[in-house]
């Protein structure tokens, strides 16, 4: 393994902005004024509220990822069957919102979902008045799906357009109908895209914090919110660091699982199912 000269800036970058902050977090989690302490770890596991918030974060990330997959796969599939130029134009529409800061887009949902907003007005026109949309758990889920959907669509789309069409033709020649072809050939072959899509949605979703604050009205805190509150407003660097580490471990575990799944999907090709 010979590193080229070009890799040094990258190594420096990693050391300065990834490794060093991580070491600081570990230090603050286990040391207070230079002395070893387990107090913060105890505090993090002692309070059932922290666990409840963690559970909510995991659930929300699961639900968000599932919804993104259910919405994103058909979209990516449709895009992949279109003419190249049409697909390119349509995919711009998915990427375009990403040119704007995601906080701004989430603020826009505040206006849309508010009880004097346009959606509420349409609903009350049809007789559903006083439906609370903003500041609900559903609003947080919506914000998550909305913000992360492109990260599901694009990797799946990329895999689908590279798919060797002769596989599909072979399946058809051998008498498989459209549905069978899709589930036996197309879907298994697109697994690498699905898995990287899941990774790219699940991990930011489980660590997110601003969305829940803006759309959940402080009633549906996520683990990210809790960490922010501990460090930014309580000034409890120790507990905040422990909570960050717990989240970090969770993210690492999910990355390992995804990588395992990707290897299986990659090496065995279409035989996953």
């Amino acid at each position: 393994m010979k590193r080229t000269l070009f890799s040094y800036p990258y190594i420096l970058w990693m050391a300065l902005f990834i490794l060093a902050p991580m070491l600081f977090i570990v230090y603050h989690a286990f040391f207070e004024n230079g002395r070893w302490t387990m107090e913060y770890i105890k505090a993090a596991f002692e309070d059932a509220v922290y666990f409840k918030v963690l559970l909510r974060s995991i659930m929300l990330a699961f639900e968000g990822t599932l919804l993104c997959l259910l919405l994103g796969y058909p979209t990516a599939y449709m895009l992949s069957t279109m003419k190249k130029s049409t697909a390119a134009l349509l995919s711009v529409f998915f990427i375009l919102p990403m040119w704007m800061n995601f906080l701004l887009r989430t603020y826009a949902w505040q206006v849309l979902l508010g009880s004097s907003g346009i959606i509420s007005r349409i609903l009350s026109f049809f007789g559903f008045s006083d439906v609370l949309l903003l500041h609900t758990e559903g609003a947080v889920l919506l914000g998550t799906v909305y913000n992360f959907l492109p990260f599901m669509i694009l990797p799946i789309y990329t895999v689908l357009i590279k798919l060797d069409k002769s596989h599909i033709e072979a399946a058809n020649d051998l008498g498989a109908d459209g549905i069978t072809t899709f589930f036996k050939v197309v879907f298994p072959l697109s697994m690498p895209g699905v898995i990287s899509g899941i990774t790219m949605v699940f991990i930011p979703a489980i660590t997110t914090f601003a969305i829940s604050r803006l759309l959940g009205g402080g009633k549906y805190r996520l683990y990210g919110d809790l960490i922010e509150q501990k460090i930014v407003s309580d000034g409890d660097l120790g507990l905040g660091s422990v909570l960050s580490l717990i989240l970090l471990v969770l993210v690492l575990i999910s990355i390992v699982i995804m990588q395992k799944a990707e290897k299986t999907a990659g090496s065995e090709g279409g035989t996953l199912w």
Partner: peptide, 12 residues
């Protein structure tokens, strides 16, 4: 009181 509160906000 929590179930009665729509949201806990700041300037918003």
């Amino acid at each position: 009181q929590r179930p009665l509160v729509q949201a806990y906000l700041g300037d918003a």
